[in-house]
Amino acid sequence: MKPFSGTSLTDHALTTGEVLLTYWKVKAEYQWDAGLAMSTYLNGLKQGKLLGIHCPQCRRTLIPPRVFCELCFRPLDQWVELANIGKINTYSVSYVNWDATRRQTPEVPAVIEIDGASPGMGILHLMGEVGDTLEAITRRLKVGTPVQAVWKPDSEREGAITDIRYFRPIG
């Protein structure tokens, strides 16, 4: 088999003008309508409540909520208020930002199974009050660790997932 082709560039070639470059910056902005399910969910967050929706056919209580069940493909309208507590399904400890730069103090994203939703039904959020070293965090958090939502005060809530500041371990 003959060698494959391809010219691998070095950082040096890019910074010295050895390779010619052209540059373009995108300016893209979007404004999304929250839609049927999310409007109710986000309004719930504004009131300090986590809302799920029940599928009577599948007997599942779903979060994040949707106005249709993707399993039995029926419309849903039985909203249910869920608890402010849950347990950790999984978590991670992030030392990088979206642009691949390093963080000094890590963020701790987690999938949290919400009490009152069907088993395994969770949401993505951040953990807080868990320490700021990998050792401390992995000692404090396990799969199944009970957690509680820490809300922003009423006056600061705006109908967004960030109305919950973070979840903290309890017990």
Partner: peptide, 27 residues
């Protein structure tokens, strides 16, 4: 990531794989 429930948290791509890996590891 979902623009209502996830992106406002300041996501990055690696989160989702680290979360899945930890679930697999711990299970």
């Amino acid at each position: 990531y979902d623009q209502f429930t996830e992106r406002p948290l300041g996501v990055n791509l690696l989160w989702i794989f680290a979360l899945e890996m930890n679930r697999y590891m711990q299970t």
